[in-house]
């Protein structure tokens, strides 16, 4: 009979290590492809190379927030703590990606559109609204108090945010006269083979990073919950011990 292995003192596992190594290798490949293998564009010249970080950030913003919405629905329907934890983890990563989407788009916009930002641009502003909604979602999650009530409030916001996802995505089609943003590069664009290949590599790298982060973030939330429970157990034991002592004294 072998003694059980000591519990690890981190949130890593064999899966996350493999994912992490793949992300590092993928980032190196992406930098080499993005800066040296992919061709420049006639109009934008080398500024087009921003597409290799902007498009993956944008696509995984959608995927992260859709994951949050699915998790939110599962919480509302089944009160599944597992799904609620997934929803919260995906939301935090989605906020990160959404921020990067806006930032890289803005830095790309200066040399190509001749402006960092336009407050009336429907694609830019709806994306910002999405980001703010998800920051609100995370704020509500961190309010504390009754966990079930907090999860329910957050889940409602998570579902509402998903409703504006198609608006953000289709805004460049529906309100052509209200945006500087071009239509979808992946579905409607005309791309060089190597440009397309590099974008796909970027999507794979972002996907691997999303999976790595989701697993770690999920486990952190799980640990936080376990810590609250064990703290509560400890507090109860202490109160009981105090009670016994007082009984003995009296």
């Amino acid at each position: 009979m072998t003694a059980p292995a000591p519990a690890p003192s981190h949130t890593g596992s064999r899966t996350t290590r493999l994912l992490g190594i793949a992300v590092v290798v993928g980032v190196i490949a992406l930098v080499l492809l993005g800066f040296f293998a992919a061709p420049e564009d006639d109009e934008q010249q080398d500024a087009v190379r921003m597409i290799f970080v902007h498009v993956p950030s944008a696509l995984f913003t959608y995927i992260a927030f859709v994951t949050t919405a699915i998790g939110s629905v599962m919480w509302l329907l089944r009160r599944s703590v597992w799904w609620d934890t997934v929803a919260g983890a995906a939301a935090e990563i989605g906020v990160l990606f959404c921020g990067l989407t806006l930032f890289t788009g803005s830095v790309w916009g200066r040399p190509t559109w001749n402006t960092y930002w336009d407050w009336g641009d429907v694609r830019l502003v709806t994306t910002l609204i999405l980001l703010l909604m998800m920051i609100g979602y995370l704020s509500v999650r961190s309010l504390g108090g009754d966990e079930r009530a907090t999860a329910t409030r957050a889940a409602v916001i998570g579902v509402l945010a998903a409703v504006i996802l198609p608006i953000v995505n289709r805004s460049v089609e529906w309100w052509e006269n209200n945006t500087l943003h071009q239509k979808s590069s992946l579905t409607d664009g005309n791309l060089e083979d190597m440009t397309l290949f590099t974008i796909v590599v970027g999507l794979v790298v972002w996907g691997l990073f999303f999976a790595w982060s989701l697993i770690h973030r999920f486990r952190i939330t799980w640990l936080e919950r376990e810590l609250r429970v064990s703290d509560l157990d400890l507090a109860l034991r202490e109160r009981r011990a105090e009670g016994h002592t007082e009984d003995g004294d009296s």
Partner: peptide, 18 residues
């Protein structure tokens, strides 16, 4: 994420890291 995970793991009893 790695640092938060390590910090929390050290505080949670081993039997609860399920």
């Amino acid at each position: 994420l790695i640092l938060r995970g390590r910090r929390l793991s050290a505080r949670v009893p081993a039997d609860r890291r399920r």
